[in-house]
Design a protein around this nucleic acid. Structure first.
Lengths: 202, 202
DNA sequence: TCATTTATGTATTGATCAATACAAAAATAA
DNA sequence: TTATTTTTGTATTGATCAATACATAAATGA
């Protein structure tokens, strides 16, 4: 199946990666088409031909972000032996991922469009859906730990998952405010120091 | 000193309070002048005559927010007897304040302009400065507790203050994502359950 | 009364934005 | 070669935005 017509003059995935960087640094609204096309090295008709719209481009950039920056954080959650190891890993990897650019950027999922009734509610809802998914993922991992006997019956998995998700979200703001990697790792340590009392039987 | 000229036809502070609500719900960029003037019940020339510019209006709205919504959270920090009580109060009051509107809004200082290199960097910097001030305020309170003997010498006040500030920031995202007051109070409880191990002598 | 001062309502300005129209370019298929 | 298909670059569109021009209204001071 050879391509008909004139071949595309740029690499789609490279352009997508550059768009992701712009959205990550500037958020959805503040990333103008001029900035995006400049970073991607193309003109706007090429952008629209390849991606459809600014919103569709963002959706793809978000998926790309999850696949690249996010996978190192969340993928090991199921494979690590204990829920404690899993959550400690999430916080540790978060501290590293949120400070992997200079200046630090925090999490694109948390910061790219924080106004649910802003200019593009569907994007805010999609990001919210994703954050909720991460929280639920932690809760599911905790429930499994209860089933496996790592944690006692009666453990409040919902509250613990919500707590650690909250810490993870807060680290995005700290990163944007210039917190160093060491400070964020310190936050992760502090959060993990609650583990024993959170999972102690009543 | 009677006022010359035609008297202002609206109450300046009432209008400011309404502007604050709009900025709080929509953020700086997404709050259009049309929305602002509609909520304030005035036309744009009156807005500019009374407040100067959209940015100046936001600065005043931010100060108003700190004075009203924020004071109940931060004011008791110095007067409460112990650092533990102070921090527990901050988290508890935060959970309540962030869910005092329906739908929940979280914190205007955290959410109104989260892109440091967005459309208005000076506003982002001002908000960041304020967040940093809150964090420093917690650290100062912890150092006082060390001086007074509540906490042992060698307590890592910087790390503990950063941790609790991070939790507080994360609660804004949770509130925006629809977390209930009870869930946020649960987050506050989880965070406080780390207290003993965080403040235990080495 | 009349000049001065300040506020208000209507209408508009220039800038910026996302998205597109259009014709030329570059490939394949017949 | 010629017709067809798709991409590219230039230029533009209509919408929306923050901010303002201007004439009128409503107060005080002389």
């Amino acid at each position: 199946m050879a391509a008909r017509g004139r071949p595309r003059g740029f690499d789609r995935e490279t352009a997508l990666a550059r768009a992701m960087e712009v959205f990550w640094e500037r958020g959805f609204d503040n990333a103008s088409l001029g900035e995006l096309t400049h970073a991607m090295g193309i003109n706007s008709p090429s952008l629209y031909a390849a991606f459809g719209s600014k919103e569709a481009l963002f959706q793809e950039a978000m998926a790309f972000y999850v696949k690249t920056a996010g996978s190192g954080i969340w993928e090991p959650v199921d494979s690590l032996a204990t829920a404690r190891d899993a959550i400690a890993h999430v916080l540790d990897a978060t501290a590293r991922a949120f400070t992997c650019r200079d200046p630090s950027r925090g999490c694109m999922i948390v910061l790219a469009s924080p106004q649910p009734r802003g200019s593009n509610p569907s994007i805010s809802r999609e990001l919210e859906r994703h954050r909720r998914g991460n929280r639920d993922y932690l809760e599911t991992r905790l429930r499994r730990a209860v089933d496996e006997g790592e944690l006692p019956e009666g453990t409040n998995c919902h509250a613990i998952a919500t707590f650690y998700a909250t810490v993870q979200h807060g680290m995005s703001i700290q990163a944007r405010d210039g917190a160093s990697r060491e400070e964020l790792l310190g936050v992760a340590d502090c959060a993990m120091s609650a583990w024993d009392s959170l999972t102690r039987p009543d």
